[in-house]
Simulated scan of single mutants.
Amino acid sequence: MHTNGPLAITRNERLQICRELASRLHEVYGDQLLAVGVYGSVSRGTDSPFSDIEMFGVLHDSGEDVDLSYEWSAGPWKAEVDVRSASVLLASAARVEGRWPLTHGPFFSPLSLYDPHGFFPRLREAAQSPRQEAFKRAIEEVLVGEMYEYAGKLRNAHHIGSHAYLPYLAMEFAHYGAMLIGLHHRRLFTTGALVLSEALELPERPEGFDRVARLAMSGELNDPAAVVNACEAFWDGLVQWAAAHDYTIHSTRIPF
């Protein structure tokens, strides 16, 4: 029996809290408030007894951009309310970065609690607006900024015998590998808990991804040789995958 939060609450209780928070946003921001929406598992109707609450409070644009995030625990439950100017939120929705497959779901399917001016359809349009070039750039940034760097860390850890670091690296290899696959297909993942399993269902996966992903999902990361071999094989597969799809990993010696 759990006595400290998070505690189990029903979906109806969670929705009632959302309505209470929406009412509070109206009190605080008054005529500045443009829209209020819920995102995450609550908006999808997949929330579980211990799920938290995530909401947007959207403000009319004025002379100064607003970009605030309130995140707190009330004891049995936790909530996060992002209060942003409309233009700030629209710009975020239109931006593609390395974790786009996991972070941008809220822009596509918020549960509207207040939207008299039709802001949320505009938000979805902004999220659908990036061109293929933006996804290519994000993929190349992950290939160099994360995967190449993790390959170096893996080899350093193996070289000096720092085996305790290897399970973490395997998890990062799997996570960012999934991000690359999602970006390549411009597909969103449902939730962090399903990133690896959903990535395994997509086609054109780099050679070696399946092995690393299943290793991470199994939790069997206590064999240093197996972890190193799986990650190295995946890195080799990534290099081949990048070449096949014209994603650049290596540039000129000094590109500026």
Rank of each mutant, 00 (worst) to 15 (best):
H2V: 07
G5H: 09
L7T: 06
A8V: 02
A8T: 05
A8I: 01
I9T: 13
R11W: 02
R14Y: 07
L15D: 09
C18Q: 08
R19C: 10
R19S: 10
E20C: 06
L21A: 11
S23M: 05
V28G: 00
V28M: 02
Y29H: 15
G30D: 06
D31E: 15
A35V: 00
Y39D: 01
R44Y: 10
T46D: 12
T46N: 08
T46Q: 08
F50S: 00
D52M: 03
D52A: 02
I53V: 12
I53F: 05
E54Y: 09
E54F: 02
M55Y: 09
G57R: 01
G57K: 01
S62Q: 15
S62W: 05
D65G: 00
V66S: 02
S69N: 13
S69R: 15
A74L: 12
G75Q: 09
P76D: 01
W77Q: 10
K78H: 14
A79I: 01
V81P: 11
D82F: 12
V83D: 05
V83R: 03
A86Y: 04
S87A: 10
V88K: 11
A94G: 09
R95M: 09
V96N: 03
V96T: 04
E97L: 03
E97A: 10
G98V: 04
G98E: 09
W100K: 06
W100N: 04
P101D: 06
H104P: 00
G105C: 01
F107E: 00
S109R: 14
S109C: 11
P110A: 06
S112H: 02
L113A: 08
L113Q: 09
Y114I: 00
F119W: 07
A127D: 07
S129H: 11
S129I: 01
P130T: 07
R131Q: 15
E133I: 06
K136I: 12
R137A: 15
E140H: 07
E141V: 10
L143A: 10
G145W: 07
G145Q: 09
Y148L: 15
Y150P: 00
Y150N: 12
L154Y: 03
R155C: 07
R155P: 00
H163W: 14
Y165V: 14
L166G: 08
Y168I: 10
A170E: 05
F173I: 03
A174E: 03
A174H: 06
H175G: 00
Y176K: 06
M179E: 11
I181A: 07
G182Y: 06
H184T: 03
R187G: 00
L188I: 12
L188Q: 12
T191C: 04
G192N: 13
G192R: 10
G192T: 04
R205L: 12
P206M: 05
F209N: 07
R211L: 10
R211S: 12
A216S: 12
M217H: 02
S218E: 04
N222R: 13
P224E: 08
P224R: 11
A226H: 10
C231V: 03
W235E: 11
G237R: 11
G237W: 08
V239M: 08
A242T: 05
Y247R: 04
T248R: 15
T248P: 00
H250W: 11
S251Q: 12
T252I: 11
T252M: 12
T252E: 14
